[in-house]
Design a protein around this nucleic acid. Structure first.
Lengths: 195, 195
DNA sequence: CACATCGGTCAACCGCTGTAGAGTGAACGC
DNA sequence: GCGTTCACTCTACAGCGGTTGACCGATGTG
């Protein structure tokens, strides 16, 4: 967002673009450096704007973060998947989130901060994990469905962090298809636990 | 570490106890609030000591963190396990680390900060994951051994974070044996990948 | 006992960062 | 055209937090 020229645009459009520029800069900063190390001043500079304007638009750094770090549930397939489809659906959702077209930065921003920022932790626990796990548990059925669904979520968290945030070489460097092929049976062991 | 009385102890012993008190307070603070939110002042107060003394002992907040957040590899069994034992060995190591006798706080401190603190990320990636994964890969053998070992690590990271840091209810509240029983076949799917 | 040493404290500095309030010039409605 | 509105900027405040250097009193040593 290095200075998009906004000369003589209608006010409404101007406002929307500025807000979008700030949000994008914020997502990038929060995703890259984490909440604490990301400063309003850097966000503003990246958006080509005065720091005070960020406050005017979002009120506080906390609220800016809340607006920037969203976990979009659209295009997710895991909740409408059958037992059979569930493993590949879960993997597909993760890949799409981080390698697909949507705003990957927002997801990274949330994930990067979920261990150190209270609100990010809450969203991750309640909205991303618990709600979804409850739906998955219904699909699973059988004994300990809640725990099995939670463990599926845990594995997905681990895979996401290892591949996209920690960037552990063999996991981050592998081709998507290879990871999918190897992980599918892993998740299946939680869908259909052996006796 | 609320005020251990140290009247009239030999200097050397006094020094050791103070250093230990600071380290314990630091581990707790870093584990609980993360690097940025943990302040030298709070650490010092918790250790019953002046903030300046912390600097005198450790030089800087960075070095204090490096001293506090260690991932002890002692008592780990995964590297000496056979293919057959590997899944339960990995789970055993994780449980022992976080529920066993050793200093759990140091491990939590490292894990909590590995997404936002550069040095913590480095340790997690290089020392905790890569080195161990290389050993595990040798035990595994076969095709894509490195990737499979990395994915085992990823699952362990996910399990650890979900259970001990994010505290996702079904995973955090489950009994250790139940998690072990359900996760063992999960890891086995990476040890002996189905054709 | 006198002097050096060392654990420990006190007070202060200084840079950074979130935040607030007044001000400015261009777009808008009449 | 003209006053109003609104996006936006400038400047400044205030608190926090890492870090420092001078200082103090007890412990050790000859």
């Amino acid at each position: 967002m290095t200075e998009v020229p906004q000369e003589s645009l209608p006010r409404e459009e101007r406002r929307r673009r500025t807000e979008a520029a700030i949000l994008e800069a914020a997502r990038q900063a929060f995703a890259e450096n984490g909440f604490e190390r990301a400063t309003i001043r850097v966000v503003a500079a990246q958006a080509g704007v005065d720091p005070a304007l960020v406050m005017q638009y979002f009120g506080s750094k906390e609220r800016l973060f809340a607006a920037a770090a969203r976990w979009s549930h659209e295009h997710e397939t895991v909740l409408s998947a059958t037992r059979e489809q569930l493993p590949s659906a879960a993997l597909h959702d993760l890949f799409e989130k981080f390698e697909g077209a949507g705003d990957r930065e927002a997801a990274v921003a949330l994930m990067r901060n979920c261990l150190t920022h209270p609100e990010a932790a809450r969203i991750m626990r309640d909205e991303v994990m618990c709600d979804r796990a409850a739906g998955v548990a219904r699909t699973l059925g059988g004994d300990e469905a809640d725990l099995r669904a939670g463990l599926i979520g845990a594995c997905m968290i681990g895979l996401g962090m290892a591949r996209y945030l920690l960037e552990i070489p063999p996991v981050a460097g592998a081709r998507r298809e290879d990871v999918e092929r190897l992980m599918e049976p892993v998740l299946r062991a939680l869908v259909d636990p052996p006796a």
